[in-house]
Design a protein around this nucleic acid. Structure first.
Length: 276
DNA sequence: CCACTCCTGCGT
DNA sequence: ACGCAGGAGTGG
């Protein structure tokens, strides 16, 4: 469910609730998540103080004072929230920990279990997890933006498919890939290494704009995405093409169509996404 | 490059 | 009953 903007919104909302708290009594459900962690793996973070929350792309991690922490991947349906201990525990809750001496509790909820919560022991282990993630438009600088453009020049996959590759560009998922291509007026079927400089720069600007606006709108809540406090976002009110099959294009007289690329839906306007 | 897999839930 | 869903990995 979440792409970079949703994960960033979760990070921002969890941060003030968790920083300064001490992790106590971790609980795991009997169902294993995509990357399964055992209770013993959480030993490094037990009784540790949380110092910060970080994100790169769709990866979110809690960092403790001893440099251990927890890497959180939300997958398609993951929710990472902090609530009162007394709040009813939702179905599909798979990880919980108490904040020592407080009535607060962290919970990871994930019906499909494509996500994970994995402890890491130190800085080195953390860096290994982050190694393969490309530049992130939510926070990138001009230099990193050019690395993205170089990455696109090196692949001959269709541009929509390439945008979903987290090594090429972090944070972009199925919603924002379609949205960015619409904004840049590039066909989702364009061959990546055939795009010219002008189109590539327009694409980089479009991805950056679409993702940053989504952060400003606190993420896209289509069905069940919520932030760290359980609130929905409102960026779904600002989407141009995603899940608008058959509806009118907002830029020309065309109609939004749906196609399948790499097994995933792409939404686009045939009439005005003509570059490439 | 594609198909298939991991899962549950929802809408048709 | 079937197709589809914000992700990501594997194996052919």
């Amino acid at each position: 469910m979440p792409e970079g903007p949703e994960v960033e919104t979760v990070r921002r909302t969890l941060e003030p609730l968790l920083v300064g708290e001490t992790i106590d009594s971790v609980w795991l459900s009997t169902h294993s998540l995509r990357i399964s962690a055992k209770l013993a793996d959480f030993a490094p973070v037990l009784q540790q103080k949380i110092v910060s929350l970080h994100r790169h792309g769709k990866l979110l991690w809690i960092l403790c004072a001893n440099k251990s922490g927890m890497m959180i991947r939300l997958g398609m349906t993951g929710q990472a929230i902090v609530t009162e201990k007394s709040t009813a525990v939702a179905k599909h809750t798979h990880v919980k920990f108490d904040c020592k001496g407080k009535e607060k509790q962290f919970r990871y909820i994930d019906p499909r279990r494509f996500g994970s919560v994995n402890p890491f022991t130190d800085e080195k282990a953390l860096q290994q997890e982050l190694a393969k993630i490309g530049p992130d438009p939510i926070v990138w600088n001009d230099k990193q933006k050019l690395i993205f453009i170089e990455n696109i020049r090196k692949t001959q996959r269709e541009i929509k498919v390439a945008l979903l590759d987290q090594q090429i560009i972090a944070s972009v998922g199925n919603i924002y890939a379609s949205e960015a291509l619409f904004l840049a007026q590039i066909s989702p079927f364009a061959v990546s290494n055939h795009l010219d400089d002008k189109a590539l720069m327009a694409l980089a600007d479009a991805v950056e704009g679409v993702l940053r606006r989504a952060v400003a709108n606190r993420g896209t809540s289509f069905s069940d995405y919520v932030d760290g406090t359980g609130q929905r976002g409102e960026n779904q009110l600002h989407l141009s093409v995603f899940q608008r099959e058959g509806e009118a294009c907002r830029r020309c007289t065309g109609t939004i169509e749906r196609a399948v690329q790499g097994g995933r839906s792409t939404f686009y306007c045939v009439s005005c996404q003509t570059i490439g």
